[in-house]
Amino acid sequence: MTFEHHRVVITAAGRDFGRTLALGFAARGAEVHLSARTEEAARRVREEIIAQGHDPARVHAHACDLTDPASVRAFAGAVAARTDHVDVLVNNGSRYQHGTDLLSASDEDIVDTLASGATGTVLATKAFLPLLLKSAKPDIVTMVSGCGEAGNHRSDAHDAFYAAKSAQAGFTESLSRRLRGRGVRVISLYPPDFANHDPLSPAWEDAPRTAQDPLTAQSLVDCVFFAVGQPRDCFIKSFYFEQTGTELTH
């Protein structure tokens, strides 16, 4: 599956799963716009991608603080200055907050967790929607979490993280209904904690993938590529997963 004709925007692509997605999309030929809270972090991933032999003109690094509306608008404006449309927006950015005790997090941590995950997802989608609507194949992919599932109590995440993910789930549910008639597919993933193996490692393709092993980032990437690669009459709305093993990463 290749994406040579796709222009992809990924938030929080400076590390962890955002970086994994960025490397994966670029490896399949997509033009990628990467954001991180600092441009330096986004540039490091850009250099990784270029070092793999990809055209520097098709890999772009941007700063974007999802908790700051002006920063989100600036990010979308910078992308719009380079292209007249975007095919895929990946809402990956969301701060994780650990702790089963509500009192364990400061007010500032709670505000930042909610702002990055919930408000940031809404702002980024709003900012990029005009560019998505100019695409013949627009997709919005949101990395929610099992914490966004109703009745999920399987994570040691803080209540603020549960709140942020529940907000994302409600937003994407509404967005899916409202944008389907305009040809925009809204795809949400609800993974449990998973192992984020480095895609540049030789062991990437050999990562455990049996029923007894924890979910891997490779499997999540495969889900994203599968959904985006479907014909336009196929709307895959959500991916839900059974949790196996212990908590790993978020």
Rank of each mutant, 00 (worst) to 15 (best):
232 R>Q: 15
61 A>D: 04
137 K>I: 05
214 P>N: 02
14 G>R: 02
54 H>Y: 12
200 L>Q: 15
147 C>R: 00
141 V>F: 04
94 S>P: 10
99 G>Q: 04
165 K>G: 06
239 F>R: 05
10 I>S: 03
131 L>W: 03
188 S>L: 06
122 V>C: 10
174 S>L: 14
96 Y>G: 05
222 D>T: 11
117 G>K: 10
116 S>T: 09
92 N>A: 06
57 A>N: 11
127 A>D: 03
33 H>G: 04
176 S>M: 11
37 R>K: 15
248 L>R: 15
184 V>F: 07
79 V>F: 08
223 C>Y: 13
161 F>N: 10
206 D>V: 00
197 H>S: 11
112 D>V: 12
139 D>Y: 10
157 A>H: 11
224 V>D: 03
157 A>Y: 10
140 I>R: 05
116 S>Y: 03
107 D>Y: 12
15 R>W: 04
7 R>S: 14
131 L>H: 05
68 D>S: 06
105 A>S: 15
141 V>C: 03
17 F>E: 00
109 D>A: 09
61 A>C: 06
174 S>Q: 14
6 H>N: 08
217 A>R: 00
175 L>P: 08
159 D>I: 12
106 S>A: 14
179 L>V: 10
24 G>M: 01
65 D>P: 09
125 T>G: 06
126 K>M: 10
179 L>D: 10
114 L>F: 13
151 G>I: 01
176 S>D: 13
25 F>C: 10
95 R>K: 12
104 S>R: 08
117 G>E: 03
109 D>Y: 07
10 I>P: 02
